[in-house]
Simulated scan of single mutants.
Amino acid sequence: MKSKKSIITAGINTLQAEAQAILGLINHINDDFAVIVERIIAGNGRVIVTGIGKSAIIAQKIVATFNSTGTPSSYMHASDAVHGDLGMIQKTDIVICISKSGNTPEIKVLAPLLKQCGALLVAMVGQLESELAKQADLILNTTVEKEACPNNLAPTTSTTAQLAMGDALAVSLLLAREFSAQDFARFHPGGSLGKKLYLKVSDLAERNAKPSIRSGASVKDVIIAISKNRLGAVVVVDDSKIMGIITDGDIRRMLEKYSDLADLTAKDIMNSKPKMIDKDTLAVTAFELIRQSNITQLLVTDANDYFGIVHLHDLLHEGLL
């Protein structure tokens, strides 16, 4: 068993090697890179990304990133390609073939077949003299000095470089398409990332009750209204005008402050300066306001009129934490 110090050193050395490999890619962002982005933007087909082994796993991640950022893409395993999946490739497509060596048996068989399909062939490759590089129309150079593995065998630095080059390509495409946060939200409606970009306070407040009470209401009526609607608060309203809010905390403070409750009304115990938020505000903004103000609910307004209440639990339920 290695010492704790040697284990930590190995981890640090791995990260340093991979960081240096990524920085080395900067010198490989060249005219081919720019042309690939231009061809993808101008094309009418899909981007098909293929590879074998660990490169195949990187290909799947790149496809996922492309699709989520506005570049229609498909994954094709290099082995499956020669057993029928080549039929998915059209002349209008762009194929990115990923391989460290560019000379594995499967890639050497696949490369000329890809050329025969008539699609543009892009090689993401670590050896520029390889068979894949020779067959390719354009090259994404992911050459690394060595693997982080001490035996220089396990794909580590090389796959990190492939992943980083894929991200560089995806972000360049995103910017070229002027892909906005709203576009991103359209492709991520079910996840917390998408919700942060499209979910509004009104979407949550509409699901809740809309408790209200007059300013002259008794303490008993206030407590009943708070308990009945299970939001921990009731809004004090007179003639459609928001007067204030009474929360569970206000009730506790009232009991500490007053010994005689008989003549108290809602107006006496309400917070006349409640935290409010417009119904069209993003829910994630409401969460930040609740967190910063150390409260559990916000009064939601519509052009200064009472719209509803949004509770901390509503926001947590949506995964906005």
Rank of each mutant, 00 (worst) to 15 (best):
S3L: 10
S3D: 07
S6D: 11
I7D: 05
T14N: 11
E18Q: 15
Q20T: 09
I22K: 15
L25A: 13
I26G: 13
N27Q: 15
A34N: 14
E38F: 00
I40L: 04
I48A: 10
I52W: 06
G53H: 08
G53I: 02
K54I: 02
A56W: 01
I57V: 11
A59R: 07
V63Y: 08
F66M: 14
N67V: 01
T69C: 09
T69S: 15
G70F: 07
M76P: 00
H83T: 05
G84C: 10
G87C: 05
G87F: 04
G87K: 01
I89S: 07
Q90V: 01
K91S: 11
D93A: 09
I94A: 04
N103I: 03
E106H: 09
K108D: 05
A111Y: 13
L114C: 00
C117H: 00
G118I: 13
L120C: 15
L121A: 03
S130M: 14
S130R: 12
L132M: 12
Q135I: 08
L138F: 08
I139G: 07
E147C: 00
P150F: 03
N152M: 07
L163C: 11
A164M: 14
M165T: 06
V171Y: 13
L173G: 05
E178T: 05
F184Y: 15
G191K: 11
L199R: 08
V201Q: 07
A205R: 06
E206C: 03
E206D: 13
R207P: 01
K210Y: 06
I213T: 00
I224A: 02
I224C: 01
S227I: 00
G232P: 07
A233T: 07
V237M: 13
V237F: 14
D248H: 05
D250S: 01
R253L: 06
R253C: 04
S259F: 12
D263F: 15
S272N: 11
M276L: 12
D278S: 10
V284I: 15
L299Y: 01
T301S: 09
T301K: 02
F307L: 02
F307M: 01
I309Y: 02
H311G: 00
L312D: 02
L315F: 12
